[in-house]
Amino acid sequence: MNTTSIKHMVVFKLHAGKENAAAEQFLKMSAEELAPIPGVEQFEVLRQVSPKADYDYGFSMVFANQAAYEAYNNHPVHTQYVAERWMKEVSSFQEIDFQIIA
Score class of each variant (00 low, 15 high):
57 Y>N: 10
2 N>R: 13
32 E>R: 03
40 V>R: 03
35 A>G: 09
24 E>K: 04
35 A>D: 06
8 H>Y: 13
23 A>G: 06
54 D>A: 15
3 T>C: 13
19 E>L: 08
54 D>G: 15
84 E>F: 06
63 F>V: 01
36 P>I: 06
87 M>I: 11
75 H>E: 00
6 I>H: 05
82 V>M: 14
56 D>L: 12
49 V>C: 09
82 V>S: 13
98 F>G: 07
8 H>N: 13
80 Q>V: 01
63 F>I: 04
98 F>L: 10
74 N>Q: 03
77 V>Q: 05
14 L>S: 10
76 P>V: 00
1 M>T: 13
87 M>C: 14
35 A>V: 05
94 Q>D: 09
52 K>L: 15
47 R>C: 12
86 W>M: 12
69 Y>A: 01
93 F>P: 01
90 V>A: 09
38 P>N: 07
34 L>W: 01
37 I>P: 00
45 V>K: 07
81 Y>R: 04
70 E>Q: 05
57 Y>V: 08
86 W>D: 12
98 F>Y: 14
4 T>D: 14
54 D>K: 14
67 A>C: 05
68 A>C: 07
19 E>T: 08
91 S>T: 10
21 A>D: 01
54 D>I: 12
24 E>V: 02
94 Q>E: 11
34 L>S: 02
91 S>G: 07
92 S>T: 14
99 Q>G: 03
70 E>M: 03
67 A>V: 03
34 L>M: 09
93 F>G: 01
22 A>I: 06
90 V>L: 09
98 F>D: 07
27 L>W: 04
12 F>L: 11
91 S>Q: 10
37 I>H: 01
88 K>V: 08
100 I>P: 03
75 H>A: 02
28 K>N: 13
102 A>C: 09
87 M>T: 12
86 W>Y: 15
23 A>K: 00
38 P>T: 05
27 L>F: 08
77 V>L: 06
78 H>E: 04
41 E>F: 02
37 I>F: 04
34 L>I: 08
99 Q>C: 03
51 P>K: 15
83 A>N: 13
43 F>C: 11
65 N>V: 05
36 P>Q: 04
79 T>G: 01
25 Q>I: 09
47 R>Y: 08
75 H>T: 01
36 P>E: 06
51 P>F: 14
66 Q>T: 08
52 K>I: 14
37 I>C: 06
3 T>W: 12
19 E>F: 05
80 Q>F: 00
15 H>N: 15
75 H>F: 02
91 S>C: 08
33 E>W: 02
78 H>Q: 07
94 Q>I: 07
100 I>D: 11
13 K>A: 14
52 K>Y: 15
2 N>P: 13
61 M>V: 11
100 I>N: 10
65 N>K: 03
57 Y>G: 10
57 Y>L: 10
87 M>V: 13
64 A>E: 12
86 W>R: 08
85 R>P: 00
54 D>Y: 11
102 A>F: 07
65 N>C: 07
70 E>G: 03
25 Q>A: 14
101 I>V: 05
14 L>A: 13
31 A>E: 10
77 V>P: 00
51 P>Q: 15
5 S>F: 00
26 F>D: 00
100 I>S: 09
41 E>P: 02
67 A>W: 01
49 V>R: 07
82 V>N: 11
48 Q>V: 12
77 V>T: 06
68 A>W: 00
31 A>L: 05
56 D>K: 12
87 M>A: 15
66 Q>P: 01
72 Y>C: 03
12 F>E: 03
49 V>K: 04
55 Y>A: 14
82 V>I: 15
